[in-house]
Amino acid sequence: MSVHTRSRTAAALTATAACLALLTACGGSDDSSADKPAAGASADAGKGSFPVALKNAWGSAEIKKKPLKVATVSDGDTDIALALGIVPVITPDAEDGGKVPEYKQRAIDKLGAGKLKTYDDTDGTAYEAIAAEAPDVILGINTWEMDKDYAKLTPIAPVVTYTDKAQADTMTWQDRLKTAAKALGLEAKAEEVIAASAKGTSDAAAAHPEFKGKTYTYTVVHPEQISFMSYGDQDPGVFEQLGFAKTDKAKNYGPDKNAVSLENLDQLDADVLLVTYPFGDRGVISPKELEANKLFLSLNSVKSKHFAVVPSENTLASAIAYPDALSAPWIVEQLTPILAKAVAGQ
């Protein structure tokens, strides 16, 4: 499985890519078209306004009429399609034989899609497999491989991707969703998805006023280092949307300077400390070793039990790192009770 799939597995949380952690600003439309959706399209998808021309970093995608057959080149793009009510005609095998994440399975079941048709992306994007499905459009908004893929994908179908190469890392999930929605004629549906996610987050925050103003640190144990992920100039993410605030030590860290040595574990202390081990014992320090470390045990947050582990085996850690339209509400659902127990010292 290649990295461009934005896999939900632990391998996706590499030290360099993890600067995306917490990057999140946090029913179909009527269809009066006479065209009937082909396999892979939602029957109640909105008609939209066509033709549509979407500029991108490599050229432009000219979409003459409403796409009915949508292919995706990354796991994140598959989630975008599913969030918009579209079952892709083909997707990369992002699960690599593993279990489909809960939030994704929910969407698949809701759409009655059964098992998604996939291609093996171990060696990268399978252009021939995509071409064989004759898609009307290809979604590539959540991939790091578009520099390599674009020229080979455009002869197959219009490619919907970002307007600047830097957006591979910086684009919010809301903007990725909106870009795809414009190409698919589903802009109203995208706004509905965004609004529902925002409401779910604000409802969770309102239900837990004890979160308000509590400082937090979120750290990820990578193979090379312990990473301070809630650094100063990090975009407000789900923790802050729920009412938490960064510590004063966050200003000492940034996307290119986020390593915390074992001698400086006190830098992690906050009202609430959250740690995840996406690599298990393959991290620079094992969970058992870190949680037995004398300096770690001396932290106020640890001594007072305001410490929690964010699970990685259920894909929550990777979903926090790479939120998208499908996973964002599920992140809040899963994370809120963990935070509530940590605040309560349970």
Rank of each mutant, 00 (worst) to 15 (best):
T170D: 13
G283T: 04
V275G: 04
G112P: 05
A131E: 05
V87D: 03
D175L: 01
A18G: 09
Q234S: 12
Q174K: 14
A131K: 12
A107Q: 12
P37L: 00
A183R: 01
H222A: 12
F50Q: 00
A131V: 07
S2V: 13
A188E: 15
K294T: 14
G59S: 10
I226E: 02
A342K: 03
A57L: 06
A181M: 14
L295F: 05
Y253E: 10
K152Y: 01
L82W: 02
E192Y: 00
D136S: 06
T163N: 13
L20Q: 11
A17V: 02
T201G: 02
K104N: 03
T276C: 14
G232K: 00
K251M: 15
F50I: 00
K99D: 14
F296Q: 11
K64L: 09
V343I: 08
E291Q: 13
D44M: 13
V284G: 12
N264Y: 07
G112F: 06
A57H: 08
P323T: 10
I141T: 15
A198N: 10
S197A: 14
A25P: 08
K305C: 01
A129N: 10
G124C: 10
P209E: 08
P135N: 08
S29D: 12
V309T: 11
D169F: 14
P329V: 07
D79N: 14
K246C: 07
W173L: 12
D248P: 06
D79I: 04
F50W: 02
E240D: 07
L335R: 05
Y162G: 04
A190G: 00
A325Y: 00
P311H: 04
L268N: 09
K165H: 13
A321W: 10
T78H: 01
A132N: 11
L268T: 10
I194H: 00
W330P: 05
P209M: 07
G97M: 05
T143H: 07
T215S: 11
T78C: 07
V275L: 08
V137P: 01
D136V: 03
Q346G: 05
A317C: 06
W173F: 12
Y277M: 02
V343R: 04
E192Q: 09
L23H: 10
A38I: 00
I90N: 06
K69M: 04
F279Q: 14
S318L: 13
K47C: 03
T336N: 02
S327T: 05
T91A: 15
L316Q: 03
A342N: 02
F296A: 10
A198P: 03
I285H: 09
N300C: 04
V70E: 09
A308M: 06
K64E: 08
D175T: 10
K66H: 13
G213S: 11
R106W: 10
Q241F: 11
D121T: 03
A151N: 06
A245L: 15
A195R: 05
L186F: 00
A205N: 02
A198K: 10
A206T: 03
